[in-house]
C-alpha cells in the first residue's frame, strides 16, 4: 500500500480542542508540513501565544515556549539571540499580535529578528468569547461591539501586513487566506518561504493568514468561509507586501 496522505511527523497524534470549522487546525498542519519538509523538527522552537492557540504545543511535536500575551516576538528574540542555531517561530492571533503585542511585533520586525511569525487574523477574540479585535471589520458585531464596530468610536481595523511592510528593515511580509484549498496551498508556500528566509539568516518574516472563527462569528463553517471571502478579502488584500530582495 502506498501512503499518499498522513499526519506530519512534527504533529502529535491527538485530537485538537478547536471548534468545528476553525482554521487553526489547517494552519497548524501547514506549519508542521513545512517543518517536516525542511527537516528542521529537531532544531525548531515554537513560541505559543495567549489565545485559542496557546495549546498549540499539545499538537506540535517540537520544543515550545509559552509566551505571555502579545510578547511572543520578544521571547522569540530572546531565544533566537541566545541560540541562533535554532529555528524560532511564533504563532499568534490578532488580539495577541495586533493589540496587546503591537509594540513587540513592530520592533521585532524592525530589528530584523531572524524569526518567523505566523499570524492568524480571524477578526475577533476567540478564547475570551468573541470580543472585538483590532482586526474586527467596520460594522462587524462582536460581544463588545454589539451594534457593530463603529469606526468613529474605535477607529478602523489595523492592516498589520501593510503596516510592517512600511518598515525600512528588510523582511518577508505576506498575507494569505485559508478559506479554500487553492489559497491554503498558497499559504503553505508562503510559510515555507518564510522559514527558508530564516534558515538563510536573511530576514524577519510574517505570514498573515485570514482565518475563520465560526463559533464566535455565529456561523456554520461553510458560512464562515463565505463570509471571509466576501468581507475580509475586500479589506485585507492578499499578496506579498515585501521581500528581503526589495530595495
Amino acid at each position: 500500500m502506498v501512503t499518499i496522505f498522513t499526519r506530519p511527523d512534527s504533529m502529535f497524534d491527538t485530537p485538537t480542542h478547536y471548534c468545528p470549522g476553525c482554521t487553526h487546525g489547517v494552519a497548524h498542519r501547514l506549519v508542521a508540513e513545512v517543518i517536516d519538509e525542511l527537516g528542521i523538527k529537531d532544531k525548531t522552537v515554537g513560541v505559543a501565544p495567549v489565545g485559542c492557540a496557546v495549546l498549540i504545543y499539545n499538537y506540535m511535536n517540537t520544543d515550545f515556549v509559552e509566551g505571555s500575551h502579545g510578547r511572543a516576538p520578544a521571547s522569540a528574540t530572546g531565544i533566537k539571540r541566545s541560540r541562533p542555531d535554532l529555528v524560532v517561530y511564533t504563532y499568534q492571533g490578532d488580539g495577541d499580535l495586533a493589540s496587546i503585542g503591537a509594540a513587540e511585533i513592530v520592533h521585532a520586525a524592525n530589528r530584523g529578528e531572524k524569526i518567523t511569525v505566523v499570524f492568524i487574523n480571524n477578526a475577533i477574540y476567540g478564547m475570551t468569547g468573541g470580543q472585538m479585535a483590532p482586526t474586527t471589520l467596520p460594522g462587524q458585531k462582536t460581544t463588545t461591539s454589539p451594534k457593530g464596530r463603529d469606526v468613529n468610536h474605535i477607529g478602523y481595523p489595523i492592516r498589520m501586513a501593510e503596516l510592517l511592510a512600511t518598515l525600512k528593515t528588510p523582511g518577508y511580509i505576506v498575507r494569505s487566506s485559508l478559506h479554500d484549498p487553492y489559497h491554503i496551498a498558497m499559504a503553505k508556500k508562503a510559510i515555507k518561504q518564510a522559514f527558508i528566509y530564516q534558515l538563510e539568516g536573511k530576514a524577519f518574516s510574517m505570514v498573515e493568514l485570514l482565518s475563520t472563527c465560526p463559533t464566535n462569528w455565529g456561523m456554520t463553517p461553510y458560512q464562515a468561509t463565505q463570509w471571509l471571502k466576501e468581507n475580509m478579502l475586500q479589506y485585507y488584500p492578499l499578496g506579498v507586501f515585501k521581500t528581503p530582495e526589495d530595495e
Binding site: 522552537v45 513560541v47 515556549v65 509566551g67 505571555s68 510578547r71 520578544a74 521571547s75 522569540a76 528574540t77 530572546g78 531565544i79 533566537k80 539571540r81 541566545s82 541560540r83 535554532l86 509594540a103 513587540e104 513592530v106 520592533h107 530589528r111
Partner: peptide, 23 residues
C-alpha cells in the same frame, strides 16, 4: 549579546525567552 529592547515589558520577555533556552 547586548540588546536594547523597545520597553521593559519586551526586555523581560526577551529575558524569559533566553532563559527558556537555559542561557
Amino acid at each position: 549579546v547586548f540588546l536594547q529592547a523597545e520597553s521593559e515589558v519586551a526586555a523581560s520577555n526577551m529575558l524569559f525567552g533566553a532563559a527558556a533556552t537555559g542561557t
